[in-house]
Amino acid sequence: MGDGESINATKDPWLHLKADFCVENSHIYSGRDELVSAYIKQDTREWNIPLITEKFVSEDVQAILFVPIPQRRTRDRLVWSHSTTGVYSAKEGYRFWQNQVWFMTCRKFRTLLYGCWENYRQLGTKNSGRYVQLSGIWFWRNKKVWEDKSTTPTIAMDSSLKIVADWRDVRAKNKTNSSVPKSKQGSQRCRWVASGEGILKLNMDASLFSGAPDFTVGMVSRDHKNTFLVGRTSCFRAPVSVFEEEAIGVREALSWVKDMQFNACKVELETDSLLVVQGIKNSVINLLEVGEVLEQCRRYLRELEGISIHFIRNQANRVAHKFSRITCLVNCHHVFTSPPVNLVETLVLDSHY
């Protein structure tokens, strides 16, 4: 849903919580042709709860209020709900129907595969190689189904045996590496690293409190000496997915960079959401609600010079995470020119790594 100007509230499929995406017993709403936009407060971009409660049955009221309203006006879009991008293709349609048939008619074969997988996980011995071989055979089966690439049984079996050999080599190396102290394994990738001189580092994270109808975005900027420069928290209505929540956070961080004129120097924006970073950089068409947010992020990156976006692990994003736990009112924000008390210890720990 975008602005709701082209969605019929009682006839069109638009409710996420419903199996068929439509209102319950649509016949009770016969003769009504209201658009979804009629139930949105245009000035505050919120649902008109009293009007919705008056016009719909309780089951539909809950489903309607669950649908997020974009804070910026966007057009409505027709999407394929069984795809991660909302784009329909023959491949996606085939996959959907194959999954339906697989679920309904192949219970015995699924039980066999699940049993093999459990044995593979539990045995951890040379017998597990049999199940790795099975996965290799399944790989070539998928090649035929999805890419129409065929091979001979001999090549398929040789490939499966090679997978087994590689798998055993990896297990042997893992056993060797397990004796190395964890502090020496990948420590560089699990901590915050200061930027180079003349470069600002802006860390961002989003947090959703359990049971709350909104989420908070925290942003912290530091220089190459790990000096706290400025921070900001913003609160928004909770979206449908964590993916969209993190994408909104990145968009707000980029907007803040533009408003504060951080782009006068180089800025490195860091987030612990790999999906968002990949979604922005890949430029894949996404018709779901999050697609519009990703496109807004790309527009900001094209407008702003000297800014880059990177993925980091959540262990290296602790300051931004704690900042995002500072609550504020919905659709409002707070700016901090000095770090809050609960953030000082984490800042000190980052500077001593």
Rank of each mutant, 00 (worst) to 15 (best):
M1W: 13
E5F: 00
S6D: 12
A9W: 06
T10G: 04
D12A: 02
W14F: 09
E24P: 00
N25A: 03
D33S: 14
D33I: 15
D33T: 15
E34Q: 05
V36F: 07
I40C: 00
K41P: 00
R45V: 10
K55T: 01
F56L: 01
E59W: 06
D60M: 01
V61Q: 06
L65S: 06
L65R: 09
P68S: 01
P70D: 04
P70R: 06
Q71L: 01
R72C: 01
G86N: 06
V87K: 03
A90H: 04
K91E: 14
G93V: 07
T105L: 03
C106R: 07
F109Q: 11
E118I: 05
E118K: 04
G124L: 09
K126A: 13
Y131W: 02
I137R: 07
F139E: 14
N142H: 13
W146T: 10
P153D: 11
A156G: 02
A156V: 11
D158V: 15
L161Q: 11
W167V: 07
A172F: 05
N177F: 15
S179G: 15
P181W: 15
A194G: 15
E197N: 12
S207G: 05
F209G: 05
M219K: 03
V220L: 03
D223E: 12
L229A: 12
C235T: 14
F236W: 08
R237A: 08
R237S: 10
A238S: 12
P239T: 14
E246S: 13
R251M: 13
R251S: 12
E252W: 03
K258A: 12
E270W: 06
E270H: 11
T271E: 04
S273H: 07
V277P: 04
V284E: 07
L287V: 10
L287T: 07
L288W: 04
E289I: 04
R298I: 12
R298T: 10
Y300P: 07
S308H: 10
Q315E: 15
N317E: 04
V319C: 00
S324E: 05
C328Q: 09
P339V: 10
P339L: 11
P339I: 10
N342H: 11
L343R: 03
L343S: 05
V344F: 04
V348D: 11
S351P: 02
